[in-house]
Simulated scan of single mutants.
Amino acid sequence: MAPVELRQLRYFVAVAEELNFGRAAERLLIAGPSLSQQIKALERDLGVRLFDRDRRKVSLTPAGAALLPHTRALLDRADDLKRRAGRLSGSVSVRLGYVNWLPPDLTSRTAAVAQVHVDAWVAPSHTQAARVADGSLDLAVCWVRTEDLKRLGLRARLLGADRLYAVAKGGDSSDVPDVAARDTDVLIDDDVTAWAAWDAYAEELAQSTGARTVRISDGGVTGPAFFDHVRRSRRPVLNSPKGQTTPLPPDLIRREIVAPKVYWTWSLVWREAEDRAGVLAVVDALCERVGDLGIHAPDAWLPADDPYTLPG
């Protein structure tokens, strides 16, 4: 029998509780096809069919119903093992996931309260939030909506923010005019597995400001393909948080976005039911000195469902 991952077992429990792959995928914040593939892989590894499914309904097979309570008990024991190991080691170990940004002084701020292990799997915001919810991570730094927090049973505190800008054609950076948000293009990628959070953000930005959406299917929200989209566009193109520090090619320039200024927030998220002192101590250590991030109404824009949206 092939090794079975705890993550797959958590997926099994979610589908068994929802009896609907779409709702389970939303709850886990992963793509429906990916969830279906993971369940099929789990069934293959276990050698039994867990669900009967057709176009109208999903139901547990007798084998699935028999294994469900044992799976829940196994997950509870796995969580208990982690807690006991942490106590025995004499030092709290906290697993932290991220997308592409972390506080530069993370280690110095947390060293006194816990050993923070930054997870090697760099994943999109919706994936990292789901991993915190299912226990694969203790904390994550990601973009999150209020609706996500409620659905997944998470809490969040503001940790950082990026002011986004536009990239346009033109190599002379000596006197570059600002551009209104409504006069920019916003790329939306068809790959929701990788870009679900960005797509939701971009759609609302366009609806709120009048920016124009451009649908793509090549992952060009960032990277070299992004620069190619800029070269083909007649308008400046909004840069994503993943491209904030990437040097621009010499034929492209940066243009500041105004009316309104556009911000992307980074939240530290953890489980609402979290009661481990070490994890909560890391939350306090990272969030106690966030300070003024420059997000002020009425000249700043955040999505309406962003936990930090300001009135006005």
Rank of each mutant, 00 (worst) to 15 (best):
Q8V: 00
L9D: 04
R10T: 13
F12V: 05
V13M: 04
A14F: 02
A16Y: 03
L19C: 02
N20R: 03
F21G: 00
E26G: 04
L29D: 12
P33W: 01
K40R: 15
K40I: 05
R55A: 15
A65I: 01
T71H: 04
A73H: 12
L74D: 00
L74K: 11
D76R: 15
L81I: 08
R83P: 03
L88F: 02
S89Y: 02
G90V: 07
V94R: 10
V99Q: 09
N100L: 09
P103D: 06
L106M: 12
Q115G: 05
Q115P: 00
H117W: 05
V118Q: 06
W121H: 13
T127P: 01
Q128L: 13
D134I: 13
D134K: 06
G135I: 09
L139S: 08
R145Y: 12
R145N: 08
K150S: 08
L152S: 11
R155L: 11
A156Q: 04
R157Y: 00
L164Y: 07
A166S: 12
K169S: 14
D172I: 10
S173H: 12
D175F: 08
L187D: 06
D191A: 14
V192C: 00
T193A: 15
A196F: 12
A196Q: 14
W198E: 13
E203Q: 14
S208C: 10
R215I: 06
S217A: 15
D218F: 09
D218M: 08
A225N: 11
F226N: 07
F226E: 05
F226A: 08
S233T: 08
S240H: 00
T246M: 12
P247L: 07
L252S: 11
R255A: 02
I257T: 03
V269H: 01
V269I: 13
W270P: 04
E272M: 02
E272R: 09
E272V: 00
A273R: 12
E274A: 02
E274W: 03
D275K: 04
A281L: 03
V283F: 03
D284S: 14
L286Y: 05
E288L: 05
V290T: 13
L293Q: 02
I295G: 04
A297S: 15
A300H: 03
A300M: 01
A304Y: 01
A304K: 13
D306M: 06
